[in-house]
């Protein structure tokens, strides 16, 4: 499956020409009809327009993050390009004593790092077991998870909040609390990696078993090395999710500002605190969060694409 995807250009919409024989020729030898050229031009126009729409908000965000806080305002203003470019906002975020940004950033980073390790461990054990081992109760487990998945996740939060509060894992202890919440139930998100394990031929396991390997050895020495793409995909997803989580984080850290994650903290700046003054600071903070995550994501894009396409096909 993955090999097929490597073939770079298979065309789907085909030109209207009836001359089929000419189609076989390589692209550059073929004389393009006026019609096809017109179609291609309009596709280019659409794609360029789309690129502008897709990139514009991010470009605007960067522009506004560089607006000088001292000589202009930190509020939303009626123009886009800063009159004076400066690093005021970044300086404030990183050095001002009243800015909690670095703390939030650290919180999120810790949560994301722990999740990346522990959640991957959980997801892979569940998906491997359900995909390749056969035992009593396997179908039952899958059905129970399916039904549990139909309840809105936030419903459990209400109970968990009080439970965690008993353990001191809310507000002051929000960071370990968040890790616990994200990791504990993460085994339920096994679908995509199970789909991946399903595609590895069973004969591999069987021949290893005949050679005397235990099931644990098969998992460690045969399957894991083959599963690199899905391991990377799972780590990537587990690492990225905490950066965007608002709903759980806002509830666990409720009212305890130093223990917010970046999403909750910046949300407060934009919507609850006086956002008029904090708007450009929000932009700068957004840039600081988005840049590393985006670079990481684009670098590992290949694995992400394999994961989502595989997952969508298997459902």
């Amino acid at each position: 499956m993955s090999e097929k995807k490597q073939i770079p250009e298979v065309d789907i919409v085909v030109d209207q020409e009836a001359g089929v024989i000419r189609e076989v020729k390589p692209e550059h030898l073929r004389s393009k009809s006026g019609h096809e050229r017109r179609v291609n031009t309009s596709v280019y126009v659409i794609l360029v327009l789309m690129s502008v729409i897709w990139l514009a908000p991010f470009v605007f965000l960067v522009f506004q993050s560089f607006r000088s806080y001292a000589t202009e305002s930190g509020a939303m203003v009626a123009y886009l390009l800063p009159k004076q470019w400066s690093l005021d906002n970044y300086r404030w975020l990183l050095t001002d004593p009243s800015s909690k940004f670095l703390r939030w950033y650290g919180n999120t980073l810790i949560v994301a790092a722990f999740c990346a390790v522990l959640q991957t461990f959980m997801v892979l054990s569940v998906s491997y077991t359900l995909s390749r081992l056969r035992f009593r109760g396997r179908k039952l487990i899958m059905n129970v998870v399916l039904v549990l998945g139909m309840f809105p996740g936030f419903l459990t939060m209400i109970t968990l909040y009080f439970l965690l509060k008993q353990l001191g894992l809310t507000q002051q202890g929000a960071v370990p609390g968040m890790i616990l919440i994200y990791v504990a139930s993460s085994g339920m998100g096994y679908y995509i990696s199970k789909g991946f394990f399903d595609t590895i031929p069973k004969s591999l396991d069987e021949s290893a078993r005949i050679d005397g390997a235990t099931r644990a050895q098969v998992f460690r020495m045969i399957i894991m090395p083959l599963a690199k793409p899905i391991v990377i995909y799972t780590i990537l997803m587990a690492f990225m999710a905490p950066w965007g989580d608002y709903v759980f984080a806002s509830y666990i850290a409720f009212g305890s500002e130093p223990n917010y994650n970046v999403a909750v903290g910046l949300y407060q700046w934009v919507n609850v605190a006086d956002y008029q003054g904090f708007f450009t600071r929000f932009c700068a903070g957004g840039v600081l969060v988005a840049v590393p995550i985006t670079i990481l994501f684009l670098a590992l894009q290949k694995y992400y694409v394999e994961g989502v396409t595989g997952g969508a096909v298997k459902g």
């Binding site: 291609n40 897709w54 991010f58 999403a263 910046l266 894009q301």
Partner: peptide, 24 residues
């Protein structure tokens, strides 16, 4: 994916930016 459209990878990457950047 249409035949004759160049820079396929670039168009895709531009769009994928919205997935990469945290939604908040």
């Amino acid at each position: 994916n249409k035949k004759g459209i160049r820079l396929k990878k670039m168009w895709r990457t531009i769009l994928v930016m919205t997935i990469a950047i945290p939604q908040f």
